[in-house]
Structure formats: C-alpha cells, structure tokens
Simulated scan of single mutants.
Amino acid sequence: MTAPAGSSPALVRTFTQRFSCTPRGARLARQLALVELHDWGIPESTALSGDAGLLVAELAANAVVHGRVPGRDFELRMTLLEGVLRVEVSDARGDRRPVVRLHAHQAEDGYGLRIVEALAAAWGVQDRLIGKTVWAELSVRAAAVARMRQMVVDGEIDFNGRGVNRGA
C-alpha cells in the first residue's frame, strides 16, 4: 500500500485484544500494550509509552474491579491516528459508570480515574449494546509522529506498525 504522490502516509495503528476479567488479565493487558507500542516505534523508555501503560493499567483494573461479569472478558483497544493515541477498555457492566471522586487524605483506593484525568488530554464513557467503553486519549508529540513516519519511509515498519522482515 502506498500513499498518493505528494501526501504523507497516514499513521494508523490498531490493537484489539480480549482478556480475562481478572487481576492477571489486567496485568497482561498492560504488558501487551507496551509490547505493541514498541512494535509501533514507541519504545518503553518514552513518556508516551509510560503514560499509555499507566492508562491501560488503570482502565483495565477498573474493568476488573467494577465492570466484571462472571464469564465475560474485558477488551482493550488502542488506536494511533496521527497525533492521538486512544486507549479504550470495554467491559460488560453498563450499569456501573466511572466517577471521579474526591477522597479523604490517605484513602486506599479510588485514585485510578484521577490518574486517568490527570494524564489524558480527554477521556469519557460510551455505552455499548452490552456494557460500556471507557476511553482516554493521549497527545502524541510531533517528534514521535515524525519518527514513525520515517520508519515507514525507511521500510523499518509497515503501515500496520509491524516490523518488516528483511530476511537474509
């Protein structure tokens, strides 16, 4: 697939995976998100990767704690489109809406959405036929976008963000 002459290739990446609605599933979601971002040219050592990993961890943990329905998984979806990385976590509990709460000093829980609110450029909730999707967006710095665009031009990654096998 090539971009039309005179235009830049669109930087579109997507990753979707279902996980068991357990603490182990939430940890695995974060780990695989970081691996996927690395494959997209966003190394784990970058601020964007760190922020995205934290968003995935918090949203996945909330899905496990507040959105769990026995026998149902939660779904992680990440989309990178030009200057925005969108993280979505869907669960089966549409009746339990996320709320940012003010907590007393030294509260043991309830900080997850405050972290999401602090990191994300925007966040919200969308209803689904079954359950809900909580999403958060991070701004991608122009330098990261330029680096990924150059990786596509150099043939290091394809338009899906996967490394290109150069063979021997």
Rank of each mutant, 00 (worst) to 15 (best):
P4M: 10
A5M: 15
L11Y: 02
V12P: 06
V12S: 06
R13H: 11
Q17F: 11
R18T: 07
F19C: 09
F19M: 11
S20P: 15
S20R: 13
C21D: 01
P23E: 03
L28I: 07
L28C: 00
L28P: 02
A29F: 15
R30A: 06
A33Q: 05
A33K: 12
A33T: 06
A33N: 07
E36P: 07
H38Y: 07
I42E: 09
P43F: 08
P43K: 13
S45I: 02
T46S: 12
A47K: 10
L48S: 09
L48K: 09
L48N: 05
S49Q: 08
A52K: 14
A52V: 14
G53L: 11
L54N: 06
V56E: 08
V56N: 04
V56D: 14
A60P: 11
A63W: 01
V64L: 11
H66L: 02
G67L: 00
R68H: 10
G71P: 01
F74W: 01
L76P: 11
M78G: 04
M78L: 08
L80N: 12
L81V: 12
E82G: 08
V84P: 03
L85P: 02
L85T: 12
R96D: 04
R96V: 04
P98S: 13
P98C: 03
V100N: 12
R101P: 13
H103Q: 12
Q106S: 13
E108C: 09
D109C: 05
D109H: 02
V116Y: 13
A118L: 13
A120P: 09
A120H: 15
A120L: 05
W123S: 07
Q126A: 11
D127C: 10
D127P: 11
T133I: 05
T133H: 00
A142C: 02
A144V: 12
A146W: 14
A146L: 03
M151S: 13
V153T: 06
G155P: 07
E156Q: 12
I157T: 01
V164C: 01
V164S: 06
G167E: 05
